[in-house]
């Protein structure tokens, strides 16, 4: 059951992973439990790199797949986006996130190239006067609508 979940989440990220498979070769092996998980979904010559962050399970060959957790980053490869590497986040043996990272030319700092819109929540209601904004963006208002808009309030208050 858990293995099926892994397969589905990997397949849903197939486009991103396609890059990952190309760049997997030549890197040191990931902890065996995660390799097992990925092999279950997509056969191939995948040898992801060692974990870089997170509480990764030590690469004990006897570890069950369900216990792997952490963030794992593959080696970089040249693509049309430039140098790219793929990062996966694993929680209890399930791949929970796949991110394509681009190494910038300047400082080799990684930035995400897969900019996705994800759910967010309002933390607080911001009032224009107290939020220290100079402009308000919204659906186009008419000249009459301006009179009752937040922008008008800001303008009249000299804020």
């Amino acid at each position: 059951m858990r293995r099926r979940a892994i397969g589905l989440s990997i397949l849903s990220s197939a486009a991103v992973l396609a890059v990952g498979w190309q760049l997997g070769s030549g890197t040191q092996p990931l902890s065996s439990s995660v390799s097992q998980a990925t092999d279950a979904a997509v056969p191939g010559t995948v040898t992801p790199a060692a974990p870089t962050t997170g509480a990764a399970t030590p690469p004990a060959t006897s570890a069950p797949a369900a216990s792997a957790s952490g963030t794992f980053t593959g080696a970089s490869a040249q693509t049309r986006f430039g140098a790219v590497q793929v990062q996966i986040v694993v929680a209890d043996g399930t791949v929970t996130d796949v991110v394509a990272l681009q190494l910038t030319d300047e400082d080799q700092k990684s930035v995400s190239i897969s900019n996705r819109a994800e759910p967010v929540l309002r933390q607080q209601v911001l009032a224009a006067q107290s939020a220290n904004v100079q402009g308000v963006s919204g659906a186009t208002y008419t000249t009459d609508g301006y009179l009752t808009s937040l922008q008008s309030a800001l303008d009249q208050a000299g804020l």
């Binding site: 009032a127 939020a131 402009g135 963006s137 659906a139």
Partner: peptide, 17 residues
């Protein structure tokens, strides 16, 4: 410059800045 994005459900409130 800092700008707010208006809340479509509350014309007097902003979603974020």
């Amino acid at each position: 410059w800092s700008v707010g994005i208006v809340d479509p459900l509350d014309a007097a409130g902003m979603l974020c800045a």
